[in-house]
């Protein structure tokens, strides 16, 4: 049993690389996901992740499957869509969500078109679903740098960001850091989605951000434990997903996300905090003791 879990990593360098990459990704993307959920922006994150595609595609057009070119392209496209949808919403008085939807759908379609025109279907699959098992040195260094930046920045804006979520009026009355926290956080989201897309692909990267947070909310009540737990959940799912995809020859990133999905589904029922079964039992207990 133990062998089954360890053997692939001992034997194959690409599995070890994948493991390191997934660790780096989990450590930074899961905490960002917790704040994304608490700001009720999980779907915004999803939209943003799709918006990255045309940028990555243009990078691909110029430099092929180059990590650097696709990263820079993705960063520019992601930030542009976020800024544009915010700008359109403010200037036209229409809702930010519909504008974001319009922008991201357009850019997703444009991205798929650009890649299909110049590359093969394999390339398209690579960009959409990533290649956790094919992470090269440049990709690992990139993941490392983005993780480090994320953790440092998140620490710096932690307090204003928490207050901006809980009580924005209060923060406004005592400090001007509210917008710094808001935009700083959005940049971190884009950064992590871009870093995630090398391993997980643009379609799946947001899953590793949003799902661990959504799961941990069913188990703990306080913010700090929630962040720690979501990192643990993210990494465990990556580990499980890697092994399952190794033994059963299934694409890695969908395997990781379905693992998270199954955990989420289970947590809805048995989660200690607001899980359906737990609620039911507590009600019954109250009833009996009354």
């Amino acid at each position: 049993m133990f062998d089954t879990l360890i053997q692939p990593f001992v034997e194959f360098a690409f599995m070890r690389r994948a493991l390191v990459g997934m660790f780096l990704l989990s450590v930074s993307t899961a905490p960002v996901g917790v704040f994304l959920m608490l700001r009720r922006m999980s779907l915004t994150g999803d939209a943003m992740s799709h918006a990255i595609l045309p940028g990555a595609a243009i990078g691909f057009l110029f430099a092929g499957l180059s990590v650097t070119a696709m990263t820079i392209g993705g960063l520019i496209a992601g930030s542009l869509v976020v800024l544009l949808s915010g700008f359109t919403a403010r200037k036209t008085g229409t809702g930010e969500d519909s504008n974001l939807a319009a922008y991201y759908l357009t850019s997703l379609a444009a991205g798929v078109m650009i890649i299909s025109m110049s590359g093969s279907n394999v390339d398209l699959m690579h960009v959409l679903f990533g290649s956790a098992l094919g992470l090269d040195n440049t990709a690992l260094i990139l993941l490392y740098i983005i993780s480090a930046i994320t953790l440092v920045c998140l620490t710096l804006i932690y307090r204003p960001l928490v207050l901006e979520c809980v009580d924005p009026d209060y923060l406004k009355s005592i400090s001007r850091l509210g917008s710094v926290a808001h935009y700083g956080f959005l940049i971190l989201v884009v950064l992590n989605l871009v870093s995630g897309f090398h391993a997980m692909g643009t379609l799946m990267s947001v899953g590793l951000m949003v799902l661990p947070a959504a799961i941990s909310r069913f188990w703990v009540k306080q913010l700090e434990p929630m962040i720690v737990l979501s990192v643990l959940i993210a990494f465990s799912a990556c580990l499980t997903g890697l092994l399952l995809s190794f033994y059963f020859n299934i694409p890695t990133s969908p395997m990781i996300i379905t693992t998270l999905g199954a955990t989420y589904f289970l947590s809805i029922f048995v989660g200690l905090n607001n899980g359906i079964a737990t609620r039911f039992l507590m009600k019954k207990q109250k009833h009996l003791s009354a």
Partner: peptide, 16 residues
């Protein structure tokens, strides 16, 4: 406009 669903304790809130 406090988000009372946010996972913060009474102590942490007052400490702000």
């Amino acid at each position: 406009a406090v988000d009372r669903q946010f996972p913060l304790t009474v102590e942490q809130f007052v400490a702000s």
